[in-house]
């Protein structure tokens, strides 16, 4: 039988489209009187499930903005899913951007 290294089950993740501010108080007031002005959240991932077995290479293909990077971020623990769960058989590290943590004001040596 194969060993799973990563397993994601029914992952759903949405992002709020609005910032909390005076506008949200205004929208809350409208909701109280029956006018729902609240912008629904942006659903980036909806009920996504996948499994990667030991020694297996898993490719994720999709259009721009389809949520590939977001899924990888859920799998590496950056985002907490709203529903479902992500499991792994060890620590998961995401290398999505080689410039992470570099400070443009410092030299290359100082950045290391």
């Amino acid at each position: 039988m194969s060993e799973y290294t990563i397993k994601i089950e029914h992952i759903t993740l949405s992002f709020p489209r609005h910032r909390i501010g005076l506008k949200s108080v205004y929208k809350w007031f409208h909701r109280r009187i029956g006018n729902d002005l609240v912008t629904p959240p942006f659903v980036a991932l909806k009920d996504v499930s996948a499994v990667a077995k030991k020694g297996e290479v898993l490719g994720i293909i999709g259009k721009n903005g389809s949520g590939k990077s977001t899924l990888l971020r859920v799998m590496s623990g950056i985002y907490q899913p709203d529903q479902g769960r992500a499991l792994a058989a060890g620590p998961v590290h995401l290398l999505s951007n080689v410039r992470i943590g570099f400070n443009g004001n410092l030299s290359g040596r100082e950045n290391v």
């Binding site: 039988m1 799973y4 397993k7 769960r85 499991l87 792994a88």
Partner: peptide, 17 residues
């Protein structure tokens, strides 16, 4: 911990403390 695939032990990634 959960037993997944019959053999391996999987852990939830970055669970809330």
């Amino acid at each position: 911990h959960e037993t997944g695939g019959g053999e391996s032990t999987l852990e939830i990634i970055n669970p809330i403390s």
